[in-house]
Structures are given as C-alpha cells and as structure tokens.
C-alpha cells in the first residue's frame, strides 16, 4: 500500500521553527521542524492562494502562510478555523542525518476525507 521512502535532503538544513522546500518526485513539499524538534511535511501551497508555506512563521505545530496569514495545522494539514480547506500531509523520518519522505497517495483536500 504505502509508497517508498524518498530522500529529501539533510536533517541539519532544517532548523527549529523553520521550513525548507524540497521537490520530491516532481511534487513540491514543505518540510518543517517545530520548536520541539519534530519534523512535519505538507504540500508547499496554501489552500487559499497557493502561497509558499515553507516561508511562513512556525508556531507550535502550525505554520502561518506568508501571503495572507492563514494558519495551517501541520499535523492534520487542515486550515485553522475560521479558514477552511487544507493541504495534503506526508510521512517523514530521519535516518543518519538524512531526511526521507513518503508521499501521500491522495492529492485530495484532507477536509473531504473525513
């Protein structure tokens, strides 16, 4: 069922409370490290106007889109209410200083998957 784990760069490049952008199998994803060190990955396009999420401010497990300030919960991919919609989330792991990502199959909006 699950796809392959794909390389997505070095662990050290992702600092706490920052995001980076990577292209994995032609899909642009944003990788974030929270203040507590957790890695989280979502598609790098805000559901609002497609803003580059990796440039946003990371607070807890939320990123705030740099274009218009939408909050995106990085765990679920859902926009923080009152905004609606969301982005796909992807599995991620770290191994010997390398980051690996497993892309979600569905490109669907997660709020429609309930």
């Amino acid at each position: 069922m699950a796809g392959d784990w794909l390389p997505a760069g070095e662990s050290a490049d992702i600092e706490p409370r920052r995001g980076v952008r990577r292209c994995v199998e032609g899909r642009e994803v944003a990788l974030f490290r929270t203040g507590e060190g957790e890695l989280l990955v979502v598609d790098n396009a805000c559901p609002h106007r497609g803003g580059a999420l990796f440039e946003g401010l990371v607070t807890g497990r939320t990123v705030v889109c740099p274009l218009h300030g939408w909050g995106i919960d990085l765990g679920s991919g859902r926009a923080v209410p009152p905004e609606e919609g969301g982005v796909a989330t992807h599995a991620v792991r770290e191994h010997e200083g390398q980051v690996e990502v497993r892309l979600a199959k569905s490109v669907k909006n997660p709020t429609e998957e309930r």
Partner: peptide, 10 residues
C-alpha cells in the same frame, strides 16, 4: 535547494 540523489532538483 540542494540536489539530492533520487530527488528531482527544485
């Protein structure tokens, strides 16, 4: 973004 083996460049 760095070019990673197996990862398509940005």
């Amino acid at each position: 973004p760095p070019s990673v083996p197996g990862m398509v460049d940005g």
